[in-house]
Computed example of a mutant assay.
Amino acid sequence: MNGEELRDALCSEMASITPPPPLSTGATLGAARRAHFRRRAVWASLGSVAVVLAVTGFAAVGDPGGRVYQPAGGLPAPSERSGDTKEAWPTGPDGRPQEDRTARAGTKHDQGVHLLNEVVSVVPAGYTKPDDPANQPAEQRTLRTHQAQFEAKVNGVDLWSYMSSVAVAQGTGTGRVIVEVHDAGNPLPTEPCALAQNFWGMQGECQVETVGAAQVGVVVRPGSDERLDQWSAYRHPDGVVVFVAQGTRLDESRPALKQLPFSVPQLAALAVDERFHLK
């Protein structure tokens, strides 16, 4: 095929192709506006999440992957129960209903602070207990957190849970210790391992440890959920439930501990410890 024949063949091929429709300024602008609207909607949704966390306080606990987890709860709150949305949150010390689950003042809030202090007190020798910088905004706290959270009203009685998380450091590594306490009357399981495996919905290899006359469930190895490494669970005779958890890693920004602060027997004993038996 010579050059002239090649040009004729190309022209014939191009003629057989249906040309695209001419550009429409209106259509182009419309598509651009729709894409811009979608981007704004996504950012607005993310902003709403940030506002919720800021309003409710930094009460949730994040894992090394950046996900955020609320303390375990057995029953939905008033505003979450179908057909019961008119029921108010518990009354705060100012005589008005709370804005959400979290108590920010009063005796319930003070119980959360008390629990935090008790958790700090049990960190074993050889580990430091780094605190947050002074005047740091509450929603940015990462080293120590505490929360008193309303769970539900059962038979006219308000049920609460309390959670405290404390960073523990040794050498260049930083992990954490978490204690969560649930009021008597909670619907959590009674059997030790069933109770332990209910913590934050996590599963794992559980064994029962004997502490005096108490039977304590201890998850010694987590399943696929790696938020924490080990945790214990105990239901006191009066119904109060205590979870004690430990992890070698606080978050991805810090190196992990080389070993956990507590042995399995020590972790079980802490779940029975009267310092965490909030009443």
Rank of each mutant, 00 (worst) to 15 (best):
M1E: 09
M1S: 13
E4S: 12
E4N: 15
R7M: 05
D8N: 13
A9W: 08
A15L: 14
I17F: 15
P21R: 15
P22Y: 01
P22W: 01
G26Y: 03
A31L: 14
A35F: 07
R39G: 12
A41Q: 08
V42S: 01
A44W: 04
S45A: 10
G47F: 00
G47D: 05
V49K: 03
V49A: 08
V49C: 06
V51F: 10
V51L: 14
L53N: 10
L53A: 06
A54P: 06
V55I: 10
V55R: 11
T56M: 06
A59P: 00
A59S: 01
P64S: 01
G65E: 13
G66Y: 02
D84Q: 10
K86W: 07
W89C: 05
W89A: 00
P90D: 00
G92D: 08
G92T: 02
E99R: 11
D100Y: 11
A103D: 02
R104K: 14
A105Q: 13
G106Y: 10
G106L: 12
T107Y: 05
K108N: 11
K108R: 13
H109I: 03
H114P: 01
S121H: 05
P124L: 07
P124S: 08
Y127W: 15
D132W: 13
A134P: 14
A134K: 14
Q136Y: 12
A138H: 11
Q140L: 15
Q140F: 11
R141V: 08
T145K: 15
T145G: 11
T145C: 12
Q147H: 01
Q147E: 12
A148L: 06
A152P: 07
A152M: 09
G156Q: 06
G156F: 10
V157H: 13
V157N: 13
W160T: 03
Y162W: 12
Y162M: 09
S164T: 08
S164D: 07
V166L: 04
A167V: 05
V168C: 07
V168E: 14
A169N: 08
A169Q: 14
G171T: 10
T172F: 04
T172G: 04
G173K: 04
T174K: 09
R176C: 00
I178K: 13
I178H: 00
H182G: 06
D183E: 05
D183G: 10
P189C: 07
T190K: 12
A196C: 01
A196Y: 03
A196M: 03
Q197H: 00
N198C: 07
F199N: 02
M202Q: 15
M202W: 09
Q203P: 08
Q203S: 14
C206Y: 15
C206D: 09
Q207K: 15
V208C: 08
V211S: 02
Q215I: 03
V216S: 06
G217D: 11
V219S: 09
V220L: 05
R221N: 12
R221K: 15
R221F: 03
G223H: 10
G223M: 14
D225R: 08
L228M: 07
Q230D: 05
Y234E: 04
Y234M: 02
R235E: 00
D238F: 05
D238G: 03
V241D: 09
V244E: 00
L250N: 00
P255K: 03
A256Q: 03
L257K: 08
K258D: 14
Q259S: 14
P261K: 04
S263W: 02
S263E: 04
V264G: 01
P265C: 00
Q266K: 07
Q266N: 08
A268Y: 05
A271Y: 04
L278D: 10
